[in-house]
Design a protein around this nucleic acid. Structure first.
Lengths: 338, 338
DNA sequence: TTGAAAGCGGTACCAG
DNA sequence: CTGGTACCGCTTTCAA
C-alpha cells in the first residue's frame, strides 16, 4: 500500500523517475534504477490499479464473455477459459469473467466504463448475439470460434474444415470407401459453431474422395453411451470400415466398448480416427489417431491479437485459423479385404 | 465515452450533483434528478471505472482464485465459478479470474495493487497455500471450502458433517446396519477438503448408530466405472444392504448398472443414498434420495460475507456452514429380511 | 438542495 | 539522465 511518492523519497529521486524506471519508457541510469528497485522492494510498492487505469488509459484487463449454456461440455470449456487466463497473464493481463447476464449486457458495461482493454468471446454460437454487440462497442473484440456472420470480426479457431479433410484423407488414403462419423450431441449442431463446420467439411471431402459418409449424432448428454453404441451398430451393419469420432471422451469409450464387444480389433478390423478431441486419446483403451483440439494455440493467438489491436497496427478483421495436425497412434489400417 | 462534466452541462447542474444523483448518497430534487437521468441516457454516459476506483476506493471487483488442479471435477467446479459470478453481479460486482499462476502470486498482486475489493477462494485444499497468503494481505478474503487450518478465516461451505450424519441416519433409521460408502477418487482425499470431512463424519455416525461402514474410493478419473462396480461387488459380498454414494455422476451410473445387472432392485433389495451430489440425481436410471451440494447457497453467502467485510461491521471469522437437506426420491427402504 | 474545489495515485509532456 | 507538473475522471468534503 505504499505510494509512488514514498518510493521516490526513499530512493532520493523524483516521482517521474520512479514511474519511468518501472515502465522502462525512458532510460534510467543503472545506479538510480537500482536504488529505486531497492526502495520498491523495501516498501513492497505496487502501483495502484485505479490510478494507473485513469492516467494510463490501459487497464491491463481483458473481459472474457462466456454464455452459461448448459449444453456446452464443461471440461472443454474450462480448459479454454484457463488457457485464455494463462495466455493473458503472460502478457500482464488479467481476465474478467462475464457470464452473459441479461443479453450480454456485461459486454456493453465493461466496454463503456473502460474497465477492460479488449473483449474475448468464448463458446461462440452460429447466430451469436454478441456479434452485433461487438460491432457496436469501440472496445476491440476477438472471437474464439467462428459465428455464421463474421464479417468484419477478428476470429480465431482451429481450422475445422482442414481438420475434417485431414481426417477423411487419412482414411481414404488407407483405402476406406465407407466411413462413419459419430458426431456431437444433436443440440451442438444448432447451438455451437464448429460441429456443423466439421460435419459439412467431412461430407464434402468424402464425396470428393469418392467415399460414402454416414453421420450419426451422439444423442443427449445422458444417453451418450447407448446412442453411440447403437450408432456404431448401424454403421457396421451398413458396411462401414472406418469410423471418425468427433465427440467427448465418454462417446469414444462407448464406441471402443462396442467394437470390443463385437470382437473387432482396431485397426485390423476397423479403423478409427478422433477429430478435434480436447482430451488425451492415448489414454483410451485403444490409443487413437487424433487431430487434437487444443485450447492453447487458439487462446494464445486470441490474446496476441487482442493486444495487437490495441496498437497502431491492429490485426486485419477475418478468420485466423490454426492448422490442424494429425497424431498417428496406429489406429488406421487398410480395410479388410473380404 | 461521455464524461461526467458533459452530463452536468447537458443537465444544467454541477458535476457533484450528477455524481450524487447517480450514487444516491445525497438527496437530489426529483426534477433535477430527472434531467440528469435524461442527460445520462442521451449521452450514453457510464462512469469511468479507473476514475471511480481511484476516487472512490471501491473497485467493484472481486478476485476469484482457483488453482488449476487437473483432478478437480470440471462441471462441478464450473458451476461454482458461475454461481459466484452471478451472485457477485447481483451486488454490482465483477469477478476477476485468478488461475493460481506461480504460487498464488496473483492474490498478492491484486491485493496490493488495490485491483479488487475482496478475494474469494475456490477449490480449497486441506493444506492450501492460499491460507497463509490470505493472512498476509489486507484484502478481505472468503474461503468457499474449509482448509485444515482455518483459524481466523472466513469460510463458507455445505455442512458436510451434518450431511453425512443425515445420510447415515436415513439408512440407520430404516434399519440398515451394514452400509457401504462409495467415495471420490483417492486423490480427492488428499487434494480436496471436503471428501475427508464427509468420510470421517459418516464413519463416526455409523459407529454411533451401531452400523458398520465399508469405504471404497472410486478409482482414478479414467477407471471410474470399473472401480466402482468392483467396489459394489465387494460390498455386496460382505453383506452390505445400503449404499451411500459421494461421487460424480458416472460413478452413480456405474453403481446402478452393477446393481441392475445383478438383478437387485432399489430400494426393495438394496437402499441407495447420494450425498453431496452436484448434479441432478433424478435423471439417473433410478431416482435417488440425495443431499444435494448446490453451488448457489455457498456462493451467495460467500459474496454476501465479502461485501459485509467491506463495511464497518465485518463478519466474524469462522465457519459459516450451510445446513444440508435431504430430498426423498424413494430409494431407501428397510433391509430385506432373510 | 446545490456548487466549488481538493484530492485519489499515477503517467507523460515539457524543461533543464 | 532527471525533475516539475498538468492532467486522467470521479468522489466527497466544505460552504452556501
Amino acid at each position: 500500500m505504499a505510494k509512488i511518492d514514498e518510493v521516490a523519497k526513499a530512493a532520493g529521486v523524483s516521482i517521474s523517475t520512479v514511474s519511468y524506471a518501472l515502465s522502462g519508457k525512458r532510460p534510467v541510469s543503472p545506479s538510480t534504477r537500482r536504488r529505486i528497485e531497492a526502495a520498491v522492494r523495501e516498501l513492497g510498492y505496487s502501483p495502484n490499479a485505479g490510478a494507473r487505469m485513469l492516467a494510463g488509459s490501459r487497464t491491463q484487463i481483458f473481459a472474457l464473455t462466456e454464455p452459461l449454456r448448459t449444453d456446452s461440455h464443461a471440461p472443454t470449456h474450462m480448459s479454454f477459459v484457463l488457457a485464455t487466463a494463462i495466455a493473458a497473464r503472460r502478457h500482464d493481463y488479467d481476465v474478467l469473467l462475464l457470464t452473459d447476464e441479461q443479453a450480454s449486457a456485461g459486454m456493453g458495461r465493461v466496454a463503456s466504463s473502460g474497465l477492460v482493454d479488449a473483449i474475448l468471446v468464448l463458446d461462440v454460437a452460429p447466430d451469436d448475439e454478441r456479434v452485433a454487440l461487438s460491432r457496436r462497442v469501440s472496445t476491440p473484440t476477438v472471437f474464439i470460434g467462428v459465428p455464421d456472420d463474421h464479417e468484419g470480426l477478428v476470429c480465431v479457431d482451429l481450422d475445422f474444415e482442414s481438420a475434417a479433410e485431414l481426417a477423411v484423407d487419412r482414411l481414404a488414403d488407407a483405402g476406406h470407401t465407407r466411413i462413419g462419423l459419430v458426431g456431437q450431441p444433436e443440440v451442438a449442431y444448432e447451438k455451437s459453431n464448429f460441429p456443423p463446420r466439421l460435419r459439412r467439411a467431412s461430407e464434402r471431402r468424402a464425396a470428393e474422395r469418392g467415399a460414402s459418409l454416414t453421420f450419426r449424432a451422439s444423442g443427449t448428454r445422458t444417453s451418450h453411451a447407448a446412442t453411440s453404441r447403437s450408432a456404431v451398430s448401424e454403421m457396421l451393419a451398413s458396411g462401414v470400415t472406418a469410423i471418425l469420432i468427433h465427440a467427448a471422451d465418454d462417446v469414444h469409450n462407448a464406441v471402443l466398448a462396442e467394437l470390443d464387444e463385437r470382437g473387432l480389433r482396431v485397426p485390423e478390423d476397423i479403423s478409427v480416427v478422433s477429430v478435434a478431441a480436447s482430451f488425451d486419446t492415448s489414454a483410451l483403451s485403444v490409443p487413437l489417431d487424433v487431430i487434437p483440439l487444443q485450447p492453447e494455440p487458439s487462446c494464445d493467438l486470441a490474446v496476441a491479437l487482442a493486444i495487437r489491436s490495441l496498437t497502431d497496427d491492429p490485426p486485419l478483421p477475418g478468420l485466423h485459423l490454426i492448422a490442424p495436425t494429425l497424431i498417428d497412434r496406429g489406429s488406421v489400417a487398410a480395410p479388410r479385404s473380404h
